[in-house]
Design a protein around this nucleic acid. Structure first.
Lengths: 345, 345
DNA sequence: GTTAGCACTCTCCCTTAATGAGTGCTAATG
DNA sequence: CATTAGCACTCATTAAGGGAGAGTGCTAAC
C-alpha cells in the first residue's frame, strides 16, 4: 500500500488538528476541514489504511485517531508548512537583546525566557563548553583562613572559580606573584588543552611549598575536567501545566523530576553536536524516560565555534513548525549577539 | 473561657495527629491517643470549646476538627516538643560539609539540598548580601570587540561580573594598569559603601578617555545597586507533590508559579533580619499569596555578620518541631563552615 | 462534670443508566 | 471499482441514586 496524495492530506489534517485540540480526531472532523467532496466514510477507509501503515493509532475502538511517532516524523519531514516568526515576535526578541545585558548568565537566562514564552515549552540551555574556550585571565585571590579563590575568566565571558587551601608559608604577595606567572603562562590558551608542563618550572622555584603546589595542580586539573561543570539552565518548567495531557498530577511530577535530574539532559545534549535544528520525536529518543516527549535542539556558537546547545522539550503533540522556526531563529540570534560581543573584528 | 491543661492536651493531640495524617481528627481518635479515662463525648465538648475559641476549625458538620492558624501558633509557642536532629542526620550533614566544596554556589546548593531532603519541604536561600561584603579583588579583563569584563571578588567568596564597553583608544595594557589602580583604591573596602571620589583623581589621569571613564563609573554604580543582584536559590520545589493537599493540579501549579516568581520571596526575606529561627504561619504572612503556607527562616552569617537567609516553605500542616530544629542546626552549621573558610583567625 | 445513647449530617464510593462520539461493515450507487 | 449512505456496535464520560461509614450535637442518666 502506498501513500497517495490524498492520504498525505488526510494525515496532515489529522495532525494539524490534534496538535491544537489534543483530542483524538474523527473522520467527520477531517471531512469538514477537508471541504472537497469526500465523505466521512471514504476518510474512514483511508484512516484505517494509515493506521495499518503505522502513521496513526487508536486509543480505543470507538475513539478517533491519534498520530503515532512515525506519523509525526512524516509530518515534520514532509508535511508541515514552515511558519517563520511573526514580525512582532522577531521585533520583541531583537529589542530584548538590545537592552544592556551585563552578564553572560543574564543573556542565557533571557534567551531561555524568550524561547519558553514564545513556544510555551520548557527550555534548557547548555552553557559554554569550556574546552573550546580560551583563558583570558587567571587570578589567585587570598581569602582568609588558609584559603584562596582561583578565578579563571574565559573569552566566552564565563568565570570559573574554585576555593583552594594554601599553607601558612605562602604570603599574599606570593599569591599575587604566582597569579602573574599563571597569567603569563596560560593567557590565550585553550582551557580544554592546557598543559601542566610549564608548571614544572614553577615547582622548582617554590620548592618549599610542595603542598600548595599540589593543591593548585589538583584544582587546575579539575578545571580541565569540564564535564561536570557545564551549567544547564532551565526555563519555563511549569509551562508543562498548560498541556491537557499533563493535567494528571503523576505525569506532571514525572516531568518536573526529569527536569531536575540534570545528568540525563547533559547526556542527551552531548549528542547534538552538528549545526542546524534537530528534532527528536518520542520513541526516537534513546533514553526511555524521554520517550514520551519531543525535543528540538540547535547549537549556538561564538565566532564559528560551537559553544553550547539550546533545546526545548514538550509533548510529542508539539507545534513542530513553530518550534523549529523559533529554535532556528534563536540559535542564530544568540550566536550573532555573542560573536559581536566577544570576537575581535 | 480559659485554656485548661486538658484542653491544651487535646489540642496538642489533634495537631500532632493532623500533621501526620492530613485528615480531620475526630473525638474517638483523640480518645484513643489520650488513654487516660476520658470518653469521646467529653472530648467532643472540649473540642467544641476549642473551636469556639478559634483554635480549631471544622471543614463540614460531620467531619472531625482541623487546627486553625491560631491553633498552630499556640502549638509552636507552647505545645510542641522540640525534637532535635537524630544523630544519623547530624552525621550525614557534617559529612557532606567535610567533602571539599570548591565554590560558594556549590556550598549553598548543597545546603538547600540537605534541608529539603531532611524536611521534605521546599528550600529557598537568599545568597550573600553584597553590601555587607568586602572587595578582595577587582579585575578588568579585555574581551574582544570594544568589550571588557569587570570582575569583582568579595570576601564571601562570591564573584560579581559585568560586561562593559570600552573605546578604541584604550589598550589592553591600559586596562591592566587601570585594574591595578582600582585594586589599590578599593581592596578591603565594603562593596555597599564604596565612594567614587577616589576615582576623580583617575579621571584626570585619563582625560582623553572620558567615555570609558563614564561607562566604568556606571558599572561600578550598578554594582553598588545590589538589590536586584542577590541570588535566590531554590531546592526541592517538587517536594510539594508529597503532600496530599497538593494533589490538586491547580494548587500544585499555584505553588510552583509562586516559587518562580522570585520578587515575592525577596520581599518576604527582607523582613527576617534578626537572628534565631522565625516561624510564620498561614495568614500571619502579610503577602496574600503566601497565606496558605507556613514559612520557617533563619539567618546565616560569616564572622558574626549576617550574610543571607535560609528558608523553607510548606503547608501550614507542617512538622514545625522538625522544621525548627533543622533550620536552627543548618543556620549554625553553614555559618560556622563559612566563617571557618573565609575569616582569618 | 462526665458519659452512654441516638438521631442526624455529610462525604465517599459503588453501581447503574443514559448519552454521544466514532468506528467498521454492508449494500447500494454512479 | 471507488465512493457513500446507513446501521449496529463499542467504549468513554457523565449524572443520578443509594448504601456505608465517620463524626457530630444533643439529651438524659449517672
Amino acid at each position: 500500500m502506498d501513500l497517495g496524495e490524498r492520504k498525505l492530506h488526510i494525515l496532515q489534517a489529522i495532525i494539524d488538528n490534534y496538535i491544537i485540540s489534543a483530542e483524538p480526531v474523527g473522520s467527520r472532523t477531517v471531512a469538514k476541514k477537508f471541504d472537497i467532496g469526500i465523505s466521512s466514510a471514504t476518510i474512514r477507509n483511508e484512516m484505517a489504511d494509515l493506521e495499518e501503515m503505522g502513521y496513526l493509532e487508536q486509543p480505543h475502538t470507538s475513539a478517533g485517531r491519534v498520530p503515532s511517532d512515525k506519523g509525526y516524523r512524516l509530518y515534520v519531514d514532509r508535511l508541515m508548512k514552515s511558519k517563520g516568526l511573526s514580525p512582532a515576535e522577531a521585533d520583541y526578541i531583537k529589542n530584548l537583546y538590545d537592552e544592556k545585558a551585563r552578564q553572560i548568565e543574564q543573556i542565557i537566562f533571557q534567551t531561555s525566557k524568550i524561547i519558553s514564552d514564545i513556544t510555551d515549552y520548557t527550555t534548557f540551555i547548555l552553557g559554554p563548553q569550556l574546552d573550546q574556550v580560551l583563558i583570558k585571565h587567571i587570578q589567585l585571590v587570598p581569602m582568609g583562613n588558609n584559603c584562596a579563590l582561583l578565578v579563571i575568566v574565559t573569552n566566552a565571558g564565563t568565570i570559573k572559580d574554585s576555593i583552594i587551601t594554601i599553607p601558612d608559608s605562602i604570603s599574599e604577595d606570593d599569591l599575587y606573584r604566582f597569579s602573574n606567572m599563571l597569567n603569563e603562562m596560560y593567557r590565550d590558551q585553550c582551557l580544554g588543552s592546557i598543559s601542566l608542563r610549564p608548571l614544572i618550572k614553577v615547582r622548582e622555584s617554590m620548592a618549599q611549598n610542595q603542598e600548595f603546589f599540589n593543591s593548585l595542580v589538583d584544582v587546575l586539573t579539575d578545571s580541565i575536567e569540564i564535564k561536570g561543570s557545564r551549567e544547564l539552565y532551565l526555563g519555563g518548567t511549569t509551562n508543562i501545566f498548560k498541556f491537557p495531557e499533563y493535567r494528571d498530577i503523576v505525569k506532571a511530577k514525572e516531568f518536573l523530576d526529569l527536569m531536575e535530574q540534570k545528568d540525563l539532559l547533559y547526556k542527551l545534549l552531548a549528542h547534538f553536536k552538528g549545526n542546524g535544528v534537530s528534532v527528536t520525536i518520542g520513541e526516537e529518543n534513546q533514553y526511555r524516560e524521554l520517550q514520551d516527549y519531543s525535543i528540538v535542539t540547535t547549537a549556538y556558537s561564538v565566532g564559528g565555534h560551537v559553544l553550547g546547545t539550546l533545546g526545548i522539550i514538550g509533548p510529542t503533540r508539539m507545534e513542530y513548525s513553530k518550534a523549529v522556526s523559533v529554535m532556528d531563529f534563536m540559535g542564530k540570534t544568540l550566536s550573532r549577539y555573542l560573536t559581536q560581543l566577544f570576537v575581535k573584528e
